[in-house]
Design a protein around this nucleic acid. Structure first.
Lengths: 126, 126
DNA sequence: TATCCTGGATACCAAAAAGTATCTATAGTT
DNA sequence: AACTATAGATACTTTTTGGTATCCAGGATA
């Protein structure tokens, strides 16, 4: 009927959605923006529904695509810090727009959320 | 480890990505913005990699979420027109931002695209 | 010596998303 | 009577994505 799943993006919209699609990428980028820098364990605690497998996997993909920077401190116990990159910083206004739209929409439709993305603080997870 | 896939969104970012995530939703919304109104067959031809199954399915989801309006004309052969809604129109600046980011990014990385999202015209598909 | 901490890795499995192929109705045209 | 066109529907299969459970290193601390 149409064609098989091809690797080259069809257009810029397709390309962009491939980069930031998936269950956790948007939230990871947003939380990194809010907190400026987060350690692995902090990310894990702020994204309450993520597993270590998905967190590691998603972070690696974001790193490969130049959307997060990974800084390793060879201490014991180890310490790894994640931050946004210039490229992903350009995405923040957009994610923020989307987030506000989501807030309005949820209020309109009376949909409750488990956490809040506005005051997205560790221990009081988003 | 974490919890099962739950229905209530974790936060607004999560909610928004659930609504516009997936392989085709972004493009459908963008093309509907560019063309103002598109018939079923026009959408199918402009999204070159979509099948009728996915097009129908995705349009139905968007309609259920109040992101597209479906207007049926009971003529023969039938004629069905799709347009954006007030709610999805609010998403256009964001999708446009994302699209421009994608364009810059693809150029930087030397990634070619099959079509173009800027001049997204039917017959010269995006 | 045993346990805790961090930041993962890995094998295996389940669920969700997407793809393939075939079928439909109805009217007008050839 | 056969063929075209539109806008899908449906059963079935494959691919992709995400989840579960368990394991690891290596120093600090009890």
């Amino acid at each position: 009927m149409a064609k098989k799943n091809i690797d080259t993006p069809i257009c810029a919209v397709d390309f962009a959605f491939r980069r930031i699609g998936g269950k956790y990428k948007g939230r990871i980028l947003w939380y990194l923006h809010v907190h400026k820098v987060l350690r692995y364990g902090e990310l894990r605690r702020s994204i309450i529904d993520i597993t270590t497998k998905m967190l590691t996997q998603t972070l690696r993909e974001l790193e490969e695509d130049g959307l997060v920077h990974r800084e390793v401190y060879h201490t014991m116990p180890p310490r790894v810090e994640y931050t946004l990159t210039p490229s992903s910083r350009e995405l923040i206004p957009f994610i923020n727009h989307l987030r506000q739209w989501g807030d309005r929409q949820m209020e309109k439709e009376g949909i409750p959320a488990i956490g809040s993305s506005a005051e997205c603080v560790i221990k009081d997870p988003c």
